[in-house]
Design a protein around this nucleic acid. Structure first.
Lengths: 221, 221
DNA sequence: CGCTAATCTAGAACAAGTTCCAGACTTGAT
DNA sequence: ATCAAGTCTGGAACTTGTTCTAGATTAGCG
């Protein structure tokens, strides 16, 4: 009965909307829909790379990706949703890249710091894109929680990878949480010009010390 | 030659504006101007307390504070500036309150954690206000850097107060920076419903352990 | 093939932040 | 008291995110 599979279910909430999870669950998209989605994300990243958050204008994204404005909103119910999805997309790349060349450090703390600094350098290459994604991430309200959570999980996975742990203790998970907090907030201070790259480095290295602090049993093989 | 002292100097930047420092420097305001400023901040906090960030609408703020829209924008060049100024205002209160009853903990880490949790509980009493202020703070771009920096300095002061240190070492200052990062980011996750109050507590306590880690010489009297 | 339900498109319409403007009002200096 | 310069006001206008609508298209099914 349907045509192209439903993209998302809209509800008439007074002010905000909800979204479709970016996880490969949900109704599967047809090929053309998948293509549209890709075009949109590409346009989003492209525009963001130019002028950051402000340069990602929904009408422009729609035009660039050859899609009607209404369609854009069907795929991504708000600008924030779009940018968070863009971030998910970029994060996947990043995780893939990082996997290939695991960090070299001796201790878990060193490896995590190294990994985050590597990611940081990647962001420095596209500071505007970083701006758009991070601002969206921290500005997101409850209606974007699932997507933001997904980003958070992905980040956690990257950090745990760097630590090289199978069964992290609750304490270590707490440390990872704090590291993520620091990572996000440090990025923001850098993006808004209130902290230098060197300062971000120090902050990351500082917080990574928490890992040593929470590694009681065996850390070295 | 002038009338009421100039409030701020506007420049025709393509998209953004700049602001007057909230620090008691800059051209001093006349009494009526001070009163206007106060009315505006009050209206802002009031509206924020109701519906959070979205409820602070510039037209409403202007009306509530009996000021023309153009005047509101002369005092606070953007909604973000206004909310950050509102935060400065609230932080001063908070710092005063905290000064009166210093934290009881034995170690510096305990005292800082206690202080932050106290602040957190205060925010819980006005979650919408907290939402508006914190969202503005993290969404602020470069044009608001001076004001955001001021907020950051104030927060640092509160934490250092709690630590009870006169001459913090660079290491300790790094720890304080990381604590601030964690504080802001943890607040965001709480406000957006992605972390529970208990989780925030754990994160704060976890990061505060960094203080012990960076207190080499003498910590106990 | 022909249907039917859902999707997509183009474009208007609405909302809130921000900018502009002309005229009334204040202020400090002469 | 008068004047010049800067402020404040009310309101229109512009921008960009978001919503809505009517009609054209598409996908899968009988």
């Amino acid at each position: 009965m349907p045509a192209e599979a439903k993209v998302s279910t809209k509800v008439n909430k007074p002010a905000k909307v909800e979204a479709r999870a970016a996880i490969p669950a949900s109704p599967p998209l047809t090929e053309r829909q998948e293509a549209r989605r890709r075009r949109i994300l590409h346009a989003s990243a492209q525009l963001a790379s130019r002028g950051g958050f402000d340069a990602v204008q929904m009408r422009e994204v729609a035009e660039s990706s050859q899609v009607a404005l209404g369609t854009l909103y069907r795929y991504f119910p708000s600008k924030i949703h779009l940018l968070v999805a863009t971030m998910q997309d970029q994060l996947e790349h990043m995780h893939g890249t990082l996997r290939k060349k695991p960090p070299q450090g001796e201790t878990a703390a060193e490896r995590v710091a190294e990994t985050l600094m590597r990611a940081f350098r990647a962001l420095q290459r596209e500071p505007h894109l970083a701006d758009a994604m991070v601002r969206a991430l921290t500005f997101a309200d409850r209606s974007v929680s699932p997507e933001v959570d997904q980003v958070s999980r992905q980040t956690t996975a990257i950090i745990l990878d760097a630590m090289g742990l199978e069964n992290p203790t609750p304490e270590q998970l707490s440390a990872v949480r704090v590291i993520e907090h620091t990572w996000h907030s440090a990025l923001i201070t850098w993006l808004s010009g209130r902290a230098s790259i060197a300062q971000v480095k120090i902050d990351i290295e500082t917080v990574c010390r928490l890992i040593d602090l929470t590694a009681p049993p065996s850390d070295r093989p």
